[in-house]
Nucleic acid binder design. Structure first.
Length: 399
DNA sequence: TCTGGGGTCCTAGGACCC
DNA sequence: TCTGGGGTCCTAGGACCC
């Protein structure tokens, strides 16, 4: 007697136009309207586009000014990431009811390994529909599901399922599915790789599969060459990895108008360093490497990084590191459109630390006290004094 | 078209050590 | 004395994803 099995045991569940649909949930007046979620300012871009405006050619990551031109009457809603996070938790808790083998890719999509459901459901389609039905019934949101024998095929299948559908790349049909696809449809191939492949005369996944591996490695590098060779041939050994904590925490901001001058830059960095460190502490993490990102008016972007002797979650240490990096960047009087701060090399904060000198220890106690106030009264009750001084108060204006 | 903010991973080169 | 190879860590930049 054969053990039951599910032929396509990997699901990729992807919420449709997630931010937009959450906004519609909270504001029924937006239903049926041409809605996008994104930045309204002169430098805003589309974060999420409803299917109504996609029909007009509007896409996420498109400058809002372009979207407006393409779609007169466009309704723009400012993002509320906290709210999306709440709904996301509910979506993921539904996933957990089906299997503990859930790997989140972002707030609105995840891989599920459903091998263990073989005694409860006859096939992958039944599981996919059961998940969609629960999300629809309990959260009133549309979701699309792809199913396949491997991760990337499931991921690509969900793209075909959209909106509000299911697509299954059945066991044995993988190569037929891939043969005529444009290479850019492969997960991990973007504009640059597509251009390089085009210069080799490769346009479809079928053609890519037939490029000799050494040639591919020479053009794309060893890792990318190997990876794409495998994907094009239907091979993907990756498995659903339920855990995988954050590797970095970052904050960045594009200014409404470019800024220049070390003092102005420092005052933004003070705020950003504080935000990053606060998020680290909230997550119980510390990091050893601090990175500064600067985008100039001409969009040229540089980064400077330094690795500290010991991991930190202390605002002041992150800020001081940023100032050293800023000096090294030699920005001078050039106009800056974006500043960002990231901390990587993360570890749990309760991991054994280097002995701290007195000074740092006192700062840490102070920041613990501040965090407590923030938890009780909100993030803005306590801010670095320099951000409150009238003469440097422009820091707060376009935040 | 004039380009957000949050991430991950890869490459290449240099420093340093054995 | 002028010269190898491997491993690890670090930095800078870039591709890619949602």
């Amino acid at each position: 007697m054969d053990e039951p099995r599910i032929a396509e045991p990997i699901l990729h569940v992807d919420m449709d136009a997630f931010y937009v649909e959450v906004e519609r949930l909270d504001d029924r007046g937006l239903v049926g309207q041409p809605v996008v979620v994104g930045g309204e300012g002169p430098r805003g871009v589309v974060a999420s586009a409803s299917y109504e405006v996609r029909a007009a050619g509007v896409r996420s990551a498109m400058p809002m000014s372009t979207a407006r031109r393409m779609c007169p009457g466009l309704v723009i809603v400012a993002p509320r990431h906290g709210r999306y996070g709440e709904i996301s938790e509910q979506v993921f808790s539904i996933f957990q009811d089906f299997t503990p083998l859930v790997q989140g890719l972002s707030v609105d999509e995840a891989f599920l390994d459903i091998r263990g459901l073989r005694r409860h459901y006859p096939n992958s389609l039944a599981v996919a529909e059961a998940i969609r039905t629960r999300i629809r019934r309990e959260l009133h949101l549309p979701a699309s599901v792809g199913a396949a024998t491997s991760l990337y095929l499931a991921k690509m299948a969900s793209g075909y399922a959209k909106p509000d559908g299911v697509h299954i790349v059945t066991e044995g049909s993988e190569n037929a599915f891939l043969e005529h696809l444009d290479v850019q449809e492969l997960w991990g191939v973007g504009r640059a790789t597509r251009r390089r492949l085009a210069s080799m005369g490769v346009g479809t996944v079928g053609q890519l599969a037939r490029v000799p591996l050494p040639l591919l490695r020479r053009h794309l590098g060893d890792a990318t060459g190997d990876h794409l060779h495998r994907l094009a041939n239907g091979v993907d050994e990756r498995v659903v990895e339920p855990y995988g904590g954050a590797k970095s925490v970052s904050v960045e901001q594009t200014f409404r108008e470019d800024i220049s001058g070390v003092e102005a830059l420092r005052s933004r960095l003070l705020r950003q360093a504080d935000q990053v460190a606060w998020r680290l502490r909230r997550a119980g993490l510390s990091g050893r490497t601090v990175s500064l990102k600067i985008r100039f008016a001409d969009f040229r972007t540089i980064t400077r990084a330094e690795t500290l002797r010991a991991a930190t979650d202390v605002s002041r240490e992150v800020y001081q590191s940023c100032c050293r990096l800023l000096d090294r960047a030699e920005v001078g009087v050039r106009s800056v459109r974006l500043l960002g701060v990231a901390v990587s090399g993360l570890q749990p904060s309760d991991a054994p630390r280097q002995l701290m000198v007195d000074q740092e220890e006192r700062w840490e106690h102070l920041e613990e006290a501040i965090d407590e106030l923030r938890v009780r009264f909100g993030r803005h009750v306590v801010e670095p004094a320099r951000l409150r001084r009238p003469d440097s108060d422009h820091a707060a204006r376009d935040a």
